[in-house]
């Protein structure tokens, strides 16, 4: 194992704020985009009253 402990992993050699700040916002952006894209498709589906089995 590369990291000695969980806290070492979180502190990232003292750069934890910057590393996790970057990864956290990246995660937020990706999750947010997935949510919005799916919501748009689902609403459309409902509005149009489609019966098609949706894969997403």
């Amino acid at each position: 194992m590369k990291w000695e402990s969980l806290s070492a992993f979180i502190s990232m050699g003292g750069y934890g704020l910057y590393v996790w700040g970057s990864y956290g916002v990246a995660l937020l952006c990706v999750v947010g985009e997935i949510f919005l894209v799916k919501k748009r498709f689902r609403t459309l589906h409902k509005e149009l009253g489609l019966n098609e089995k949706s894969s997403i």
Binding site: E33, I34, V37, K38, R40, F41, L44, H45, L48, G49, L50, N51, E52, K53, I56
Partner: peptide
């Protein structure tokens, strides 16, 4: 993946009055 889903939404928005979308409405698989 994102682009495909979004394209599908755009297709539905623009083609909502066409025959093939109406077929979907009636549940024709």
């Amino acid at each position: 993946a994102m682009i495909l889903i979004r394209t599908r939404s755009i297709i539905l928005e623009r083609e909502s009055r066409t025959a093939w979308v109406s077929e979907l409405k009636e549940g024709v698989t």
